[in-house]
């Protein structure tokens, strides 16, 4: 097993793949979080009845396998002649996927802020905007950050599915190496170790924050 044909060039190839994974994840998480905050506030403000269409659409993104979403997104962009490359398509679909989950997290966070606190803010003369920015945002962040970190981890792992669109990310890179070198176990172990090294510290941070920030202790 230690007698391997893997060269440093191949390791650089894997690193490139890991970089691609991180890029896709970063774009998806940033865009998805921004959309998630907008949708989450919208859902909270509109109430359960008027936000029903939005809830339904976002629910679709959570109930259909990501792989199918990616294939559908890719087919759609070629039907609509948008001319997106696989990277753009993957980022768009993954962002929407992230936004669907993030909306729930944001909504949960806002709902966790006691109404009395908000009423107190408003009765002190704060506008809705000020109330949102200075009262709700800090408190809601505290509640929902651990879940958000979990979501980021999930997106990092789910970003491996973009290989189906031909994007060479970490898992696809290792698959290419496996095909060439015929050492599946060794290369896949390296690939798994890279994933683990990226996500384990983030998971630990999430666990720490959850403990540190959990209310009332």
């Amino acid at each position: 097993m230690f007698d391997t044909a893997l060269t440093w060039n191949d390791m650089a190839f894997l690193a490139q793949g890991a970089w691609m994974t991180l890029m896709v994840t970063a774009v998806a998480v940033v865009a998805g979080t921004v959309m998630g905050i907008v949708f989450g506030v919208l859902r909270y403000q509109a109430g359960p009845y008027w936000s029903l269409p939005l809830t339904f659409v976002l629910d679709i993104f959570r109930s259909v396998p990501l792989l199918i979403q990616l294939v559908l997104g890719n087919a759609f962009q070629s039907i609509a002649r948008l001319g997106w490359d696989p990277f753009t398509t993957s980022c768009v679909i993954l962002s929407l996927y992230t936004a669907a989950y993030c909306t729930e997290i944001v909504r949960g966070g806002i709902e966790a802020v006691p109404p009395t606190t908000r009423r107190a803010a408003r009765s002190l003369g704060m506008t809705w905007r000020q109330d949102m920015m200075h009262i709700v945002a800090p408190l809601a962040t505290r509640v929902s950050l651990p879940a958000w970190i979990g979501l980021t981890l999930g997106v990092l792992k789910d970003s491996s599915l973009v290989l189906w669109l031909g994007l060479i990310e970490l898992l696809r890179a290792s698959q290419i190496l496996v095909t060439r070198l015929q050492e599946p176990l060794f290369i896949l172990l390296i690939c798994g170790a890279i994933y683990f090294l990226i996500s384990f510290p983030i998971a630990r941070l999430g666990g720490y924050l959850e403990k540190r920030w959990s209310p009332n202790d």
Binding site: M1, L153, L161, Q175, P184, F186, L188, C191, G192, F196
Partner: peptide, 18 residues
């Protein structure tokens, strides 16, 4: 919990071949 599900399936399919 810290590796993709797809990786785990690959591991079972290709990795165990070793």
């Amino acid at each position: 919990r810290n590796t993709p599900a797809l990786f785990q399936i690959y591991m079972a399919h290709f990795g165990l071949g070793a």
